[in-house]
Design a protein around this nucleic acid. Structure first.
Lengths: 215, 215
DNA sequence: TAGATTGTTAATCGATTAACAATC
DNA sequence: TAGATTGTTAATCGATTAACAATC
């Protein structure tokens, strides 16, 4: 077991492992090898073993990993054994969609407050939460002990919202707006911008030359 | 100019460059240096120059890059100078949110058909498109020349939908469901699963030890 | 011209994979 | 015991960054 700083690539794979392990547990699989996991998750077994070994000796030689035990360990590593309150700014369609996800709950994550700048949205009900005005954001974040902020506002407003989140004391931000946010280094930002994904996909299309617009 | 295969990391940065360049153009900035870009996008200037140099000599020594010209070039590289039709399966909240995005349009991408397996959804109107039953998917994909498929169905159904997309002849898939899809290697898949982002964010929270549930 | 900035090579850094002794 | 599979070291591979000649 090392105490080196763990690379982001490793951390990003942990939720993927966790997700699959939970599925295995539901299917009452007791034990799994890095080989099996690798096959299912399209990853190199050595990589999986190495990833896990950063955090402890979770496996048994000749046997593999105990599914329940590994779930428990990964949830602990990811801090999903604490309750983590999440706030969301941007009560549009996407924000609405995220609020309705129930996955969080099982993992002790919960969107506990929703904010929006638009008058027309305020007071609206989303998943049993009343949309609050931005003016209440900082107070609510502090009172409700919100530690992660989700941003689902248009690009132009995202930086402002991020700054409000930072001021309120949020520790991490998940940003869906297509902008690079500037925040102090103690706040972690992940960008979940699907336009980037979609546009980069286009690169891999075969060149058909068809229907080239005038431009 | 090299003809080596370009790494995915490079391709994924291209849309980020493009996005920012478009913003610069709107602000009537004529020229930009890798230095400037790097600052705005939190990237190393050398990396930006190297990325672009894979595709051609787009810059001018001592001057930088012509904004309009670079936009044009990147759009060409990403094949965004062709019309690219997109199909979406899963007319839930998330699917709905994606359909309403207008970003695509400017870049010649357009969601032209929406499908769902649920009876209650079929015939519904989403962004001026009638939701079609899955049984029509393969025909519609072929007739409308749909080249990219977006999957916004629950995890359990995602693999099936992917297979239908592949059979219909889609070249690439953007998957929002939290599963690793198995598809033939000629089909490109990007996973845009935000639960992975969110859970990996939790790792970076400070350990507070507070409120640990019984579990 | 002097200053700026590219394109590119070389150096560095980091991440993935292979291999294997340890051991269940 | 024999077969399986871990944890870990060493080898490989790839991506990022620094440095600088070329040149606008």
């Amino acid at each position: 077991m090392k105490t080196l700083k763990i690379s982001e690539a490793v951390v990003r794979r942990l939720p993927v492992y966790l997700r699959h392990l939970i599925e295995l547990k539901q299917r009452e699989v007791l034990t799994v090898s890095s080989q099996d996991l690798g096959q299912k998750l399209d990853l190199n077994p050595a990589q999986i073993r190495k990833d896990l070994a950063y955090f402890g000796d979770f496996g048994r030689k000749g046997i593999g990993y105990d599914v329940s035990y590994l779930i428990q360990q990964i949830r602990h590593i990811l801090k999903l054994d604490q309750i983590i309150n999440v706030g969301l700014v941007g009560a549009g369609k996407l924000g609405h969609a995220l609020c309705n996800y129930t996955v969080y709950l099982k993992d002790n994550m919960k969107i506990v407050a929703v904010f929006d700048a638009m008058e027309s949205k305020i007071g609206t009900d989303i998943n049993n939460l009343k949309v609050q005005p931005m003016s209440e954001m900082i107070t609510t974040v502090r009172n409700q002990h919100i530690r992660i902020g989700i941003i689902t506002v248009p690009a132009a407003e995202a930086q402002y919202v991020a700054e409000q989140f930072v001021e309120a004391g949020v520790e991490a931000i998940l940003n869906f707006a297509p902008v690079i946010l500037k925040v102090p280094s103690h706040v972690r930002v992940h960008t979940a911008d699907f336009t980037t994904d979609l546009f980069s996909l286009a690169y891999y299309l075969t060149d058909q030359g068809k229907e080239v617009p005038v431009q």
